[in-house]
Design a protein around this nucleic acid. Structure first.
Lengths: 230, 230
DNA sequence: TGAATAGTGTCTCTAAGACAATATAGC
DNA sequence: GCTATATTGTCTTAGAGACACTATTCA
């Protein structure tokens, strides 16, 4: 039918907010754009949806991360869709925004033109990328209150004190140790490993844990969260 | 540039899950399709994004509701975006799904071919509309736990017992009266009106309330919800 | 043994749910 | 007064945070 001909002029893209923890702060990956518009500016990794090859929008986001950032299989979740006539100078556009989490230990070597920026100190960004980053951070913080989301910022093996530090960095506030450990236990997503953490410490070593298989790509949630708001 | 020519074949649409409360049950508006594909089938109100006139995707959703269902200004929120090559037989498509809430009292007379169906007893639906409805209902239930969302299913004036009944119908479970009133008070979104509820009752009348101006299109949220599950 | 951090026991305090008392209408 | 529902008071209980004690390692 004539639908395609009648409504051909919507640009369909994906953008990805890739977050990691560096220097105890949430940081977002920005790439220097090589093409117009905004060539030379730092922006989120993004690109057109490829109707020929992408299985869906999240698949497009994964492809963008793989091709443009060298990131292989991070935790990836749809954030929201941004749209309108003005956000992209090329015309009426839709961006199906996603966010992704990756532990610093799994980051690939940075491509030329790729930089990490703390989400609290963003440079000027083209399109509506600033708003997209802000909504992604809000979403991550909100979900971290009551779910296992931040484990995806840890490597495969980690101790509870390490995981607590990750939660605190993401939430931006200290977390009660006893409550934290109760909550983690209640979420039932971790299993201890026999090897222990020995590190440089002149102190008691910490038990290493890993994510149970069942939670590899599913979040665990609990009714009530940690600090229920500053 | 050549972008539009390179990537023209993504259909960009919106679908709307319009929910109301009828007979103490959440019900969704379905329209009988008049055009292919799936002409004659019941489906969600939806349509193409009009790049010429729509301000953004939510504006497109509001237009679809207005034109196809006669609904003027309901509470409207973006749900998620569904995409892929198979969900629409016309080709690779994107649907920016929204949900809307409207009190039964404000429903317009039903157009020809429009029907309400309880969300627990959906008929077969084309596209991925069943999944869209299910995710909308999940979202509404989740947000109702800790926010003022269900007030948008009440008319302009209502009593606390009425509002509690709405919460219970949405959540599908009874709510503790004392906790409920404490929570509503804490949310600070309602103000009492001087007129009282007189109705048929051979009993004490209930105070009428209305939503404060500031919360007309903004939700009020609290850290911990009502029944936190099961 | 002392320092440092890991892990746990337990008390306190907040807030949700249960229960029931009181309030106010129509009859 | 009697019935029915609205509204409020207060007790119980679950769970989050504070505090501090014990455990274990290395120097």
């Amino acid at each position: 039918m004539a639908a395609k001909a009648e409504h051909p002029n919507v640009l369909c893209t994906v953008d990805v907010v890739l977050l990691t923890l560096r220097d105890d702060a949430l940081q977002v990956l920005l790439l220097r754009r090589t093409a117009e518009p905004f060539a030379g500016a730092l922006a989120l990794p993004g690109g057109y949806v490829h109707a020929q090859s992408d299985h869906d929008a999240s698949d497009a986001a994964a492809r963008v991360l793989r091709d443009k950032a060298g990131v292989e299989s991070p935790y990836l979740e749809q954030l929201a869709t941004f749209s309108g006539p003005a956000r992209d100078p090329r015309g009426w556009s839709v961006s199906i925004a996603h966010f992704a989490l990756l532990p610093e230990s799994l980051l690939p070597p940075l491509h030329e033109g790729a930089v990490w920026k703390p989400v609290e100190r963003l440079p000027a960004l083209p399109f509506d990328h600033r708003q997209i980053v802000q909504e992604a951070v809000e979403r991550v913080r909100a979900k971290s209150q009551y779910s296992s989301l931040p484990v995806h910022l840890c490597g495969e093996r980690f101790t509870l004190p390490q995981l607590q530090a990750v939660y605190e960095a993401v939430l931006g506030e200290p977390v009660n140790k006893v409550s934290f450990r109760r909550k983690i236990d209640e979420l039932g997503m971790l299993e201890p490993i026999e090897g222990e953490f020995t590190a440089g410490g002149a102190h008691r070593p910490a038990q290493l844990y890993r994510l149970r298989k069942a939670f590899r790509h599913v979040l665990s949630t609990s009714g009530r969260g940690l600090n229920s708001g500053a």
